[in-house]
């Protein structure tokens, strides 16, 4: 579901140094020609590392993102909503799976990536460190968070790495369903009882600013964007995407009869865009660095699911090994006979 702008880790703000200048020139020329890079192709180490980091961060975000919404499946207020939410959260697990598979084409294993998540070395989208306090949050997440994710992700369908670009095509189609179902939940609330409408407004008030933060730091503070652009991984800047999101969403909020919690929000005819207030980047960095409302709970949930599932995975491996050994023994016996 959710990518967060990739340039939040200063360790990756390094150049793509390579000993093989000619190979790198040829590689960059292919990118400039909009050719896809495939797993068996030569690639600079910095390109591989950037992709591993971005794809795995995206995969982790999908899997951790199952938690805030998953907690409402058992309490969904109608059977139709329950089924839709189940299908949505299941999609997120599926997205995690495609993305781990795409990352594995770059020479890392799913186990290594999960280990990096659990040790705190790898990040995931910080939006999932916020609480889902009400049912309206399920609608708001679909409408705003998935809406922001789509803005981030559609350009990735054209990214230079083939396995990632192809995974993103399918993911974006499903995200579009997720966004629509979220909007539909909020629409139903806004057309419902006064309590339901108030629930929708209160949820928007909490999620609006964290959603704007999902696009990452301002372009002026984002030194990694240049390299990701040169590699054909990042196609549109953080601020451009954020502006596009605000412009689209204001009209949707007006349609719903909801107020966006930003007194500075107003149409700027000279720019042809909405102006909006200042983002609290201190909050963003606090949550990215582990001090959000649910960082600890999310990691505890993931780690305990993984650890409590270890015996299940071990049993599957042990059984597969026994099964294979018996097949070999049977084949040997047949041959001897």
């Amino acid at each position: 579901m959710y990518t967060q702008a990739i340039d939040t880790d200063p360790t990756l703000r390094t150049s793509a140094a390579s000993d093989d200048g000619a190979a790198e020139d040829a590689f960059l020329a292919r990118i400039a020609d909009d050719e896809k890079i495939e797993p068996q192709d030569w690639m600079p180490e910095a390109y591989r590392k950037t992709l591993v980091r971005q794809i795995s961060q995206h995969a982790h975000s999908e899997v951790v993102g199952m938690l805030p919404e998953g907690g409402w499946i058992t309490r969904a207020p109608s059977l139709k909503r329950k089924e839709i939410l189940l299908a949505k959260v299941q999609d997120e697990g599926g997205h995690g799976l495609y993305l781990y598979a795409a990352a594995e084409t770059l020479g890392v294993s799913r186990e290594q990536l999960i280990d990096a998540l659990h040790s705190g070395k790898a990040k995931y989208s910080s939006i999932f460190n916020y609480e889902t306090k009400t049912w309206a949050d399920i609608g708001t997440i679909g409408w705003l968070v998935d809406g922001a994710a789509i803005m981030n992700q559609v350009p990735l369908c054209r990214c230079s790495y083939g396995p990632y670009a192809r995974a993103m095509i399918r993911i974006c189609k499903e995200e579009s369903f997720h966004q629509r179902q979220g909007f539909d939940i909020v629409r139903a609330l806004c057309e419902g009882t006064p309590e339901q409408k108030a629930m929708a407004q209160e949820s928007l008030n909490r999620w609006w600013w964290p959603t704007l933060m999902m696009f990452g730091p301002h372009d002026s503070d984002s030194t990694h964007t240049g390299q990701a652009s040169a590699y054909g991984i990042k196609r549109i800047s953080n601020d451009e995407l954020r502006q596009k999101f605000v412009d689209v969403t204001v009209a949707q909020a007006e349609f719903l009869g909801l107020s966006i919690p930003d007194p500075a929000l107003r149409w700027n005819p000279a720019r042809g865009h909405y102006d909006f207030g200042k983002i609290d980047w201190d909050e963003f960095w606090r949550v990215v660095n582990g001090q959000g409302p649910c960082n600890e709970a999310r990691m505890n949930d993931r780690i305990s699911a993984f650890e409590e599932g270890r015996w299940v995975r071990d049993a599957a491996s042990a059984h597969a090994a026994k099964h294979a050994a018996r097949a070999v023994a049977r084949a040997g016996a047949l041959e001897a006979a």
Partner: peptide, 27 residues
């Protein structure tokens, strides 16, 4: 559905959700 997001591996999470979807759909 209580397992959703907490399965022993991602494939199983998806499989259990699928069964939940099947049987809730039948209900």
């Amino acid at each position: 559905s209580e397992w959703c997001g907490h399965g022993p591996q991602l494939e199983e999470d998806i499989a259990l959700t699928n069964t939940a979807l099947d049987v809730i759909g039948q209900a």
